[in-house]
Structures are given as C-alpha cells and as structure tokens.
C-alpha cells in the first residue's frame, strides 16, 4: 500500500458533504459500546459546529439516567472551554480560535473540531471515568 492509496481509503469513510447551507462530516465513531457507528457532525451556515444531540442520545441509550454523571460531564465541558451544551443535550462549538500566521489571520475550524471530538469521546464513556475540576481523568 502506498501513501496515496491509504489516503484514499481514509477519505472514503471520513468524508464531508458540502451543501449550500451546511457541511456534514461523517466519521466512524465508537460510542462506548465498542462497536463503530457513523457520527455526523454539522457546521451550519453561520459556522456553528454541533453533534445534533447524538452523543447524549447514545449515552442515555447505554446508561439510562445521566444524573450520576452530571458533575463529570460539567467538568469535561468546563475543562474544554470552547465546547458548550445547548438545549441540554447538543454539544456545540460557536467560537473558534483565531490564529495569526505571518501577515494572515484565519479561523482555525480544525482546532474546534478536535476539541469537540475530544469532548464527545470523553462524554461517551463518562460512566467509566472520574473527571476532576481541572479536566484530569481517572479510571473508576
């Protein structure tokens, strides 16, 4: 296998769909039960990125009542700043970092995406970890 072929295989499944009013990003994701499923993240026309509520939907499906994990979830969100919880169940990134590169200034959407994926990954397994107020993770 060469670099081009591997690149092509990765992009077949981690792919974007561009529409006039949004971009959808499809990723093979593990929601805490060990099996891969497709996660769709969406940027709307205002550049707001969200998971559409999928993370909490899958978590509730798996563990039921989320009340015991509220503090952990809040600590994960607080530690990661950029990611917020809207309508009680939708993980969202509204404010992306502005980066300066030489004379150019640009908005770093990939950093925001990385941060969201990190939060989704941690929240998806919140029943197996303890997260302190600084965001440090400990295994239950």
């Amino acid at each position: 296998m060469d670099a081009q072929a591997l690149n092509s295989y990765i992009r077949q499944e981690i792919r974007k769909e561009v529409h006039s009013d949004r971009i959808e990003l499809y990723l093979p994701f593990v929601f805490g039960n060990g099996t891969s499923d497709t996660l769709c993240l969406v940027w709307n026309k205002d550049g707001v990125l969200s998971d559409g509520g999928r993370t909490f939907k899958e978590l509730k499906k798996r563990v039921g009542d989320l009340t015991p994990y509220s503090e952990n979830i809040q600590n994960i969100l607080t530690a990661h700043g950029m990611v917020t919880l809207e309508s009680g169940h939708i993980l969202t990134v509204r404010n992306f970092q502005t980066c300066i590169c030489g004379d150019d200034t640009y908005t770093d959407y990939m950093a925001g995406l990385s941060r969201l994926l990190r939060v989704i990954s941690q929240i998806s397994i919140v029943d197996t970890i303890k997260v302190d107020e600084y965001g440090a993770v400990y295994v239950c």
């Binding site: 093979p28 994701f29 941690q122 993770v137």
Partner: peptide, 22 residues
Amino acid sequence: MSAAQAVMRMQQAIAVVCQLGP
C-alpha cells in the same frame, strides 16, 4: 476493520488517555 475506523479508534483512545491525571 477499515483504515478510517482504525484511525478514529486511535484518536478516540488518545482523546481520553491524554487527559489522565498523575
């Protein structure tokens, strides 16, 4: 397992493990 699935699994593992406390 596809290469994409393997890459995402690695990224998810890193996302959690990289926050381990002392």
